[in-house]
Amino acid sequence: MSTVLVILEAKSGSPSRISLEALAAGAALATATGAQLAAAMVGPAAAMDSLGSLSAAIAIEHPLLDRYTADGYTAACAQLIARLQPDYVLFPHTYQVRDFAPRLATRLGRVLLSDVTAFSLDGNTVTFTRQLFQGKLNGHYHAAAPAPCLVSIQAGAFHAAPSAPTSIPVESFAPALEPSAIRTQPGEPFRAATQTVDLSSAPLIVSVGRGIKDEANIALVQELAQALGAELAASRPICDAGWLPMERQVGSSGQTVAPKLYLAVGISGAIQHLVGMKGSQCVVAINKDENAPIFEIADYGIVGDLFEVVPALTTAIRKAKG
């Protein structure tokens, strides 16, 4: 019986959410191709106790794998694949996987199918879909080389199954690794020292424009930003007026930002502002003028008086966060 092997990634000792999504993708692929599902993870066996139904659960254990290195992981996974002979090897598409999986594939004489969002079965051929041109185009691929086929799964593409006890005992696998084969010396991960304001790397931004009318009203938006856990930013007129410091200005003469969420409050959307935030993944605009240009680039829009909408939103967010 052929095998779909999912190589999970541990995050603070247990499989990360995106790993469980990859596992769900593996389960679906195993079902579709009539294969059995195996899972492996670098780390202690105890961390793999709630992965549901599996044909094999393998904890890869070796002191040289305590800290991630591409050399170590490549060698360990290559040995595991040699032992299990799977048809498919799935990974979560994480920074770590992007770092070592192409190397692993090359060592096996294969190419990793990276960042896959979906697959479909067409006769005996599995067609995988991945995005091209930053998501503007989908590409459909199939593997022409013999097994194994290595695939990494995009975050959010599959829903992780509810956790259930692992159906079989976890085996331990100790790869043969030599210290000399590990050429890189990784340091301890750290978070960047909190700079004064670095809007460019902020994941969430609440930005305020001249619709706020008065310096005293800034507090209203500040509360919203706090509730959301977002950085506060502003358009140029606000910073020019000195209501917020210049370092919080977004736009052509200020910072260029690309957050996951950009919530524009009372910003009509002058070009100088738009060029500074057009890379945002999701734009929400609150403005009283339904013709405000900001709505042209917004994903979600609320037409209304910001002095009513913002407090309502702050309350709703606080409630949602509990």
Binding site: S268, G269, A270, I271, L274, P293, E296
Partner: peptide, 10 residues
């Protein structure tokens, strides 16, 4: 550039 991209120019 302004007429093509700037909301006010448009």
């Amino acid at each position: 550039c302004m007429g093509g991209y700037d909301p006010k120019g448009r």
